[in-house]
């Protein structure tokens, strides 16, 4: 069932229409949240072309679990949780893969990095942030990504990651220490 002309702004309506097989409604969800997912996935995995596959998996997983969405949390929080889980799974998978075949494999991934910035300065800034993030421990990297790239408060970060607020605060402080050490070397 495809509606001819509409602009669904309410999330619940979008979800209902998507569940009914409305391609455009689901397309609207994808368009609305793809940048948010890109920040999480690319912030965590690096700005490589392979991250697009993980991004696609996020929305595919969203679609297959859309019937479980009760509307208690915001749709963005629900999508963000899926993105975080799939990204952490991908990090684990890459670790397993590269530890089996190569010690320096992870660096090789960055040969495919896509530079889509116009000016040199903007490219450098992006590169600096990416390098710093990739050098961080994943459990700190996710906290930094949520806060620095997504602009989430500590409380929101705790909610998305399903962690106690105290844990997020302590990881935030340890992440800051780690980031300082990394940035000195860059």
């Amino acid at each position: 069932m495809i509606k001819e002309s509409y602009n669904l702004t309410d999330e619940t309506e979008l979800v209902k229409a998507s569940l009914a097989g409305d391609k455009r409604a689901f397309g609207q969800i994808v368009t609305r949240y793809q940048k948010m997912v890109a920040r999480t996935v690319k912030g965590m995995l690096g700005d490589s072309v392979f991250t697009e596959d993980v991004g696609q998996e996020v929305f595919i997983k969203l679609y297959s679990s859309l019937s479980e969405f009760r509307g208690e949390a915001k749709l963005s929080t629900y999508i963000q949780r899926i993105a975080v889980n799939l990204t952490l799974n991908e990090i684990k998978r890459r670790k397993r893969f590269f530890s089996m075949f190569s010690q320096k494999g992870n660096n090789e991934m960055h040969e495919f990095e896509v530079a889509d910035q116009n000016t040199e300065e903007r490219r450098e800034a992006s590169e600096l942030v990416n390098k710093a993030l990739q050098a961080m421990d994943p459990k700190f990297r996710i906290i930094v990504t949520m806060r620095m790239l997504q602009g989430y408060s500590t409380k929101e970060t705790a909610e998305i990651l399903d962690l106690p607020l105290g844990t997020v605060l302590s990881r935030l402080s340890r992440a800051q220490e780690q980031l300082k050490n990394i940035l000195v070397k860059l």
Binding site: G43, E52, Q56, F59, A125, S126, G151
Partner: peptide, 29 residues
């Protein structure tokens, strides 16, 4: 955090998928 993420975006720290991302997701779904 919102101010920081906005400033970083202004400085070129932006992330996005390719233009055909949405179409490919819909095709796959």
């Amino acid at each position: 955090p919102i101010e920081v993420s906005n400033r970083l975006e202004e400085e070129g720290v932006t992330y996005n998928f390719s233009k055909s991302f949405s179409d490919r997701v819909i095709d796959r779904v």
